[in-house]
């Protein structure tokens, strides 16, 4: 780990517009600093600035950026009205990590691509312009959607996938004022600048995540993984689906482990809406979802796997 300056913010305002890396739970950042994949010159500790309450906001909920993952997953309102979020959080990491990890920090966790985490490998995300060793390398857990010739990494988390399906909004503060970023547009595709995981600007601070009024219906987070716990998703499917009179009245889907972002596709949601569920319909939805899917060799299986995981989730959610 390289030496760094450490200071502590007392209020949100102290953190906004700063060039220092923000640290809260540090569950990902510290690991990367030990590997010297991340080498910040200064860390600004924001764990004491508040932002750790979960408040009702109209029919929705506003979750402070520094609420721990454990507290959010255990919140009775979240468990009752947005169970998808609770389930997705509990599907990730370990109790110890969830106790430390914060809501805002979780959104900012970085890919677990083995080449990104290994300084001797070429990686455009770590060192722009150096190339992508994952292409042609061990890429079993890499992206099948939205990848570029510069980067095929995936966003690794579960929570953001659920938040995407739940139509959550990320609240931030910048020097020029507050802004709101829909969760579905928070992360970005790699393109030729994979070093940028998301649309946060330098000095911008996540202050809260808000959930709109409960979507109701069945909420399912299906994480397919190599072992029963403590493994990143091979693919995951988040679904909030409501049936009316035997038809899908509304559905919001998001997918993890397949792209540089939690993946959403409004056309897939629209295709399903108003239809009677059937294996044939699920297949049509998967066709559309996977229209542009591209395997990298070791991860080719994710294409049929995502199709099957989607079918499983839709079958369960619709009672088909």
């Amino acid at each position: 780990m390289k030496a760094f300056d450490y200071s502590r913010a007392e209020a949100t305002a102290d953190a906004v517009g700063q060039s220092a890396r923000l640290i809260a739970g540090g569950t990902n950042l510290l690991d990367l600093m030990k590997l010297e994949v991340e080498t910040p010159e200064a860390l600004l500790d924001i764990t004491r600035i508040g932002l750790n309450a979960i408040d009702a906001e109209g029919e929705g909920l506003r979750i402070g950026a520094l609420v721990s993952n454990s507290d959010a997953a255990a919140d009775p309102r979240i468990r009752r009205d947005w169970p998808l979020l609770s389930r997705a959080i509990l599907a990730g990491a370990s109790p110890q990590l969830r106790n430390k990890a914060t809501m805002g920090g979780n959104l900012c966790q970085r890919t677990r691509c083995g080449y990104f985490m290994d300084n001797r490998s070429a990686c455009n995300k770590r060192e722009p312009g150096s190339g992508c060793a994952a292409i042609g390398g061990v890429n079993r857990n890499h992206a099948i959607l939205g990848a570029s010739s510069d980067c095929i990494a995936t966003y690794p988390g579960d929570m953001a996938v659920a938040l995407s399906a739940l139509q959550a909004v990320v609240h931030t503060e910048r020097p020029e004022g507050a802004r709101e970023i829909p969760m579905r547009h928070f992360h970005r595709l790699p393109g030729d600048t994979p070093q940028q995981d998301n649309h946060l600007e330098s000095g911008e601070v996540i202050t809260a995540i808000s959930l709109p009024a409960p979507l109701g219906g069945r909420q399912i987070y299906r994480k397919v993984r190599d072992r029963a716990s403590y493994a990143f998703a091979l693919v995951s499917v988040a679904a909030a689906l409501r049936m009316e009179e035997g038809r899908i009245a509304s559905v919001h889907l998001a997918f993890g482990g397949v792209a540089h972002t939690p993946w959403t596709n409004d056309h897939v949601d629209e295709l399903l809406t108003g239809e009677r569920p059937s294996p044939a319909l699920f297949d049509k939805a998967a066709d559309l979802l996977l229209e542009d899917a591209q395997g990298q060799g070791h991860n080719d299986f994710k294409i049929p796997l995502l199709r099957r995981a989607l079918a499983a989730v839709l079958a369960e959610a619709t009672g088909e």
Partner: peptide, 24 residues
């Protein structure tokens, strides 16, 4: 998991080398 191009081990910690966990 070894990289076939240079023989280096890609999964070199207990997060990525999957031994069974309690839930398994």
């Amino acid at each position: 998991s070894f990289d076939a191009r240079d023989g280096h081990l890609v999964n070199h910690d207990l997060a990525e080398y999957h031994v069974p966990v309690h839930a398994d």
